[in-house]
Each structure stands twice: as C-alpha cells, then as structure tokens.
Design a binder for these strands. Structure first.
Lengths: 192, 192, 192, 192
DNA sequence: TATGAATGAGACTTCATTCAT
DNA sequence: CATGAATGAAGTCTCATTCAT
C-alpha cells in the first residue's frame, strides 16, 4: 500500500508468466489481476493499458539486453573473443530467466513493429561485431546479414529447443559448443 | 460445388495473409470476410470456427511439409545428400510462398500445443536423419537434439531474416551456402 | 431481422426518450438495449458508438429544423410574416414531438461544440431574417444578436415552461401571443 | 481550520470551472484534485460525494440568488420598479461571475429534480411579482406562467448569448434595454 | 486534515457465432 | 450455399470512493 513500486513489479512478473503461458492476447487483465492478487483497476495505476504493459515488458528487457551485449563486446578485441563473451552472456541470460526469454521470443512478432531502426538490438550488435571481424580479416568476407542470421540461428534455436524442453542441459553448459559451431559457420570450414 | 471449393480457397488465402499481417487473434472474421468479399456467415459454411480455420491452415501445411521432406530424404543414401536435398526443398518452399512460411512460424507457438508427439514434423524428420548419419559415422557423435537445433537454426533464422527483408536474395540462391554451413556445424570443423 | 432500418429507428426513438429522462451520460447502452428489447451489441450495427448516436440524434434534427425554418421564411416577404410563420412552425414542431425538443435543448451544451460555424442553425436563420427586416426598415435598428436573443428567449423559454409542465396549453395555441410579444420586443413599443 | 475552509473553497471554485468546461459527469474527481493541486482523497474531507459537491454548488447559489431577488423586490412598490431592480441585479450577478451562471444553467436539468416545490427560486419570485402587478392593474391580465416565461426568456437568452460570446457587451450595459423589452412584453404593446 | 494506492462495480465496446431469409 | 442482422459473453478500461499511513 505504501510501496507502489512493489506492486508494479508484481504485476510485471505475473503478466510475464501468463503471457508466455497463454499468449498475450489470450491473457486477460482479470487473469493477471487474479494471479497477482490485486484488483483489476490497480493494474491501471501502474500501466496505462494492457498494450503498454506488454510493450514495457518487451522493450525494457529487449533493449537492455542489447545494451548489455554491446557493453560486453567492447571489452574484447577480436571477433572470436567478442563472440565467445556474447554467447556466454546469452546463455547466462537464458538460464537466469527462461520465461523472460520466451516472452521476448513470442512478443517479437507483435512488438518489433514498434522498434524503430535507430534502436540498438541484439541483432544490430551482432552484425556490427561480425562486420568488424570481417574488416579485420578474422573471418572471410560474406554478406554480413547472412552471417549474422546463421550465427543467431544456431544460438537462438538451441535456446528455443531448451525452452521447449527438447534439450535438457543448462544452456550455459553448451556455451562453448555453441561458440565453436558459430565459429565454424563464420570461418567457412577452415581450421578453427 | 466447384464454386464452393473456390470460396474455401479464397477464404484460406485471405485469412493466411491477414493472419500474418495482423496476427491471428487480431484478425476478425469480419476482416476476413471483408477482404475476401464474402459475407461473415459464409465463412462458417467452409470452416467450423475461426480456430479450426487457423488450425487447418497450420496443420495441413506444417504436416504436409514434413511428409514431403520425409519422402525426399528417403530418396538419398547419405546424410549429406539428404541434408542437401532437404535444405534445397526448404528454400524452394519458402520462395514459393513466403507468407505461408511466415504463418507457420507465427502460428507455431499457439498451434504446436495441438501437435501430438506421434505426428511427424520437420523437426522429427531432421532428427531422424541426423541420428542415422551419426550411426553411419558420417558425422561425429553428439546429442542429436542439439545438432538438429543448430542445423535448423541456421536455416530457419536465415529464412526469418529474409521474411523481415533483412536479407534480399532469394533463399534458393543461398541453398548451397546454407548446406555448407550446416555441414560444418555437424562435422565439427573437419574438412568438408 | 430483415429490415435493419426499423431497428435503427427503434434505437433512435428509445435512446431519445431515455436521454431526456435520465440524461445522456446517465443513460447506459444497457438501458437503451433493454428498453428497446434488443441486445447490446445490436446497437453497434447501427451506430458507431454512444457518442455518435447522441450526435446523430442531435445534428439530424437540429440541422433539419434549421433547414425547414429557412425554407419557410423564404416563402414570405416581410419580417413580420416570416416571424409569424417561423414561430408557428416552432410551436408545431414542439407539439409534434416535445421529447425531441427537450433532447435538442439538453444536448445543446455538449453537442454544440461539434457544430461548425458554417452550419446553419435556427439561431443563424433568425439573425438573418431580423437583419433583413432591419435593412428593410420594418423594425428599428439595434444589435442583431441582441434582438435575436430576445426573440428566441421569448419563444424558447415558453417552450421550456411547457416542457416542465409549468404551462399547460398546447404551444400552437400560444403561437399568436408569442408572435405578438416578439414583435413588440423588436419594434420597440411602437404601434404594431 | 482556516486552511481547511480555504481548501473547500478552492475545491468549489475549481470544480465549478471544470463542470462548466467539460460537464459534470465528464469531470472526474481526479480532474478536480489535479487542477486544485490536492490529493483525490482530500475532496472527501470537505464533501460527502461528487454528487453532493455538485448539488451544494447548485443549491447554494441558485437558492441564494432567489432569496436575494426576493429581498430586493420587497424594497420596491410597483412591478415596474421591482422588475427594473431584479433585472439590474440579474445582470450584475452574471457579470460578476459568468462561470457560476453557466453552471446554474447547465446543472438545472439534473439538479432541478432535487428542488422541492416549496423552495423559492428566481422563477417563483418572478411569478409572484408579476401576479402582484396584474392584481394592481399595472399590466393587463394574462396567464402568469406565460408572462413569467416570456420575461425570463428575454433576460436568460441574452445571458446565454453572452455566455457563448455571441454578444460582447457587458450584460449590465444592457440592463435598461432588457427591462424595456420585458415591459413591452408584459404591457401588451400599450404605451410604456 | 491530507495523502494516494487500492478497490471493484460497472461502463463501453468487440466479435465469434447463429439463423431466418 | 450465401447473406448479414442479431446475439450476448467477455474484454478493456474508468472512476467514485475507501482507508492505512
């Protein structure tokens, strides 16, 4: 009652889980309020609308993660080190909060329309890093977008498999395997 | 009756596009009827419900594609040939109807719950093929699910990039590049 | 079911009465639907929203009445004849549908904001007619708006008294009395 | 306590303006609190409810004004003098606080239901005064309610025009003109 | 007295679905 | 088979009011 920000976090947490479980549109305000143990109207003291709640949940984490990745890659010199660190970070992020990851994944299609091109995302960071690596002759030249797509695909799809429990190990345990695979994708089959 | 089945296809086609454009839940029966130039009630002559329409659109194509892949892989002996053919097929499928591909992608989250484990999907086919390849010592042993995830990721994410116009080439033109990348992922960096 | 326009009229009629009885904001969609014997959703097949219903009810009749008055005044030459006819018409309008009149009165404050200046209203017609009468030297010069206000006030307030049952006679029976009073207001007390 | 009554007046003042600007139902407690710079709950320290606030605003001023008029008319002997004084007073009232006048006007429809017949209003005072004038043979006999309606209409509608800025002069400047017009209405066109 | 987070009834509106024509 | 007006359950959101601080 005194601490409104606690309520806001409670709503965010509850909504995130329900969104992932049932889908955003399929989750009703009543669902969220009920699960959070608050009144329906209370939600609107903290979020303007359901859409805005979904967007805030998405943008905050999506953009924050990109910033985190960018800060991280700057600490390293080579593409190989950058990539290693980024994938390690990605795995840690997933393991820390798989539900959040799932949300980012499922919300993408709807929310990405609101992401303006100047916003930095994990994709743009990855492309930038790969482009630099090519410029440094670390890896052979190829279309940057294609390279980024393939690298991203390797990591993302494994995470998706994990989210669907098709893979059982912690993602962090696979970090090196993923890095190696990505590196092979980028280096075009030369000796790693 | 000929006219009737034409109407059904018209509905399917229109719905598919609207579903991709706006999302399934966000697309109303009125939207579909309006865009298809038919009355709202008419849709129910051809589909039991909106859910059933969405499901039919998904299952038909999702499962058909898996069957197609399976039939194809049987024509080849080695994993490498199987993979090459499957990826070629995947790219052709995408290029033939990118909207349909987008639909399968977006419908996944909601519809996959209705896919029973015994149904054969592209994922199961891929896993089966990879498992055989490992048994045949074509590629080194590793967790099949992990291998499948990585291979799938490479191909799928490139398709997604293409769907978002982040990549401009036709997917079929990238077929060999993708196959090579997947192969490197699987073979652990040995000489291809 | 076949004739949608009948339903629309039913809604209009029901809403009008409820709006007058309870006020616009105080009347709910459920009230209207219940009183009209239709489902709540049905209202939205005929009106975009409650606001639009209130506006259509207002504008149609308000503007129509002005047009009617204008057509009428054109049939006469002198201000006196025009005024006589207009007041007679006003009284007939009131007697024909007192509820409609009450609605126009009560909706004014909220709806008049949406009336653009170029729209012709009873007020503008009255001002025009009085201005012409002054130009023709039928009545002494004075500020047109002031003259119009006073004439309108005489007629309108009597109608309001009637609407509140403070006056019991039919308005049409008072038509001549009102005309005479208005004329005295305009002519500044000279011999009529 | 001094501070408290100041807060109450602040609320009254703020609410009055918002009520006129947006309508009573359309004005929320939050609107009022926000505009007055107080918390939402504070309003309830001074008024039982929003309805009671609206009613107090109305009844106080509406009834006070009637009392004022009544006291005033008693100071004069003849209808003509009474009327002159009352109209002068009305104009002064309007010019002093046009927003308050607008509020009384717009609140009428909703609040008048709560006005019991024994309460003295401006209308009853006017009727009483006119009835006396007729009894004194100052003006010809006619239905008192009708006479009152017409006189009231002249004055009220001019005020309304002024409130809508269709008339620009101060109402007090029109006081004599209005009195003369009303007199002509009452005297049936005889010599003023 | 003042605050403002919380409440919850209820308002408006949407939309999948039905059915008489 | 086609139509489209009608339905009514359910969803989102508002807002007067309460109450712990």
């Amino acid at each position: 009652m005194r601490d409104g920000s606690r309520t806001k976090e409670l709503i965010a947490h509850t909504a995130l889980h329900l969104f992932v479980e049932k889908g955003i549109t399929e989750t009703t305000i009543r669902d969220i309020a009920g699960a959070a143990g608050i009144a329906e109207g209370t939600l609107y003291r903290h979020y303007e609308s359901k859409d805005q709640l979904a967007w805030e949940l998405f943008s905050t984490n999506y953009l924050d993660f990109a910033r985190e990745l960018d800060r991280l890659q700057e600490e390293y010199e080579t593409l190989k080190d950058k990539l290693t660190a980024m994938i390690r970070q990605f795995c840690a992020f997933f393991d820390r909060d798989p539900v959040l990851f799932s949300y980012l994944l499922l919300a993408q299609h709807a929310q990405l329309k609101k992401v303006t091109p100047e916003m930095e995302t994990a994709v743009t960071v990855l492309q930038k890093v790969i482009a630099q690596g090519m410029a440094r002759r670390e890896v052979p030249e190829m279309e940057v977008e294609l390279a980024a797509a393939m690298v991203l695909g390797v990591v993302l799809e494994v995470a998706i498999f994990k989210a669907y429990s098709r893979i059982t190990q912690e993602l962090s345990q696979l970090s090196e395997t993923l890095t190696a695979a990505c590196w092979r994708v980028l280096t075009g089959g030369g000796i790693s």
